[in-house]
Design a binder for these strands. Structure first.
Length: 270
DNA sequence: AAGCAGGGAGAGA
DNA sequence: TCTCTCCCTGCT
């Protein structure tokens, strides 16, 4: 058990922000997530958080995963005081952070996300993990499933993938797994590359277009300058930024602002 | 119950 | 380049 007081963090907002699909509410104020083969529960009471892990694990894995080294308060203060829409979006999604998630998991996740909705993405990812991933148990005996490595997905093949209800996306996922194994999709190179290079490489991969590549850059490589434009963001830009989004003003971190806007739009729709 | 939902590939212009 | 259709599936 590790406890911390943390500003600019809200678990519910992150879980619903569409950047991660394996973070679920366990009970009041408690969320559970699986990442890097490990399972974590977090309880939030205001700005006080308790994590179901040791101080060591917190420092080595979760602090970084939750992007706690980044000052989101400072970023929010950079928002144009004249931009009432963006201020409102930030006010509503004040506790959003960009999680530093695993690259391979993000590649598969956002391949699944195309032309798809959040609840179905969640189900697909969970089914993929429980079918092809590795079954693990916490010290308390709670079962969880790790995200399948490329080897496991390639080994499963279309025979298994086609039974998971992924639709036409199954062949993209198998293709990506095979590409990692044969070296044509080089994860280590992507991790070292800058945003432009990573994006250019990603769109070469079958099933990855501009939007999905941007999501992978933002959520899997922490290139916070990446600004994915999906149908929601497109709609937002048309409604609130007819002259175009001020990318110059927010150069280098526009992706974080995109996340506030996206979250705001999801809530407005409901 | 036709049409849509966090897109992309492939074809044709 | 740009536009158009089709793609799996589940939900409304």
């Amino acid at each position: 058990m590790t406890e911390r007081k943390i500003a600019d963090l809200d678990l519910r907002q992150i879980a619903e922000s569409g950047q991660c699909f394996r973070m679920v509410q366990k009970r009041e104020n408690v969320y559970a997530l699986t990442a890097f083969g490990k399972y974590l529960e977090i309880e939030q009471n205001g700005d006080m958080f308790s994590f179901s892990c040791t101080e060591e694990a917190f420092g080595e894995i979760w602090e970084d995963y939750l992007d706690l080294h980044t000052d989101y308060g400072a970023i929010k203060r950079l928002v144009d005081a004249e931009d009432t829409y963006l201020l409102e979006a930030v006010r509503e999604g004040w506790g959003i952070r960009i999680l530093r998630q695993d690259l391979w998991e993000m590649i598969v996740t956002f391949l699944v996300s195309q032309n798809n909705n959040i609840s179905r993405i969640r189900k697909s990812i969970e089914l993929l993990c429980s079918t092809v991933g590795t079954e693990q148990y916490t010290e308390e005996g709670l079962r969880y499933d790790t995200f399948p490595e490329p080897e496991a997905i390639a080994h499963a093949g279309m025979e298994v993938l086609s039974t998971l209800g992924l639709g036409y996306r199954d062949k993209y996922i198998l293709g990506a797994a095979q590409a990692v194994l044969d070296g044509s999709l080089d994860l280590e190179m992507l991790r070292l590359a800058d945003y432009e290079t990573a994006h250019k490489e990603l769109v070469k991969q079958y099933g990855i277009g501009k939007k999905v590549a941007d999501c992978i850059c933002l959520f899997g490589l922490y290139h916070i300058e990446a600004f994915p434009v999906d149908t929601h963001v497109k709609k937002i830009l048309e409604a609130h930024y007819p002259g175009g989004f001020p990318h110059e003003r927010y150069k280098g971190y526009a992706g974080i602002l995109q996340q506030y806007m996206f979250y705001h739009d999801l809530n407005a729709a409901a």
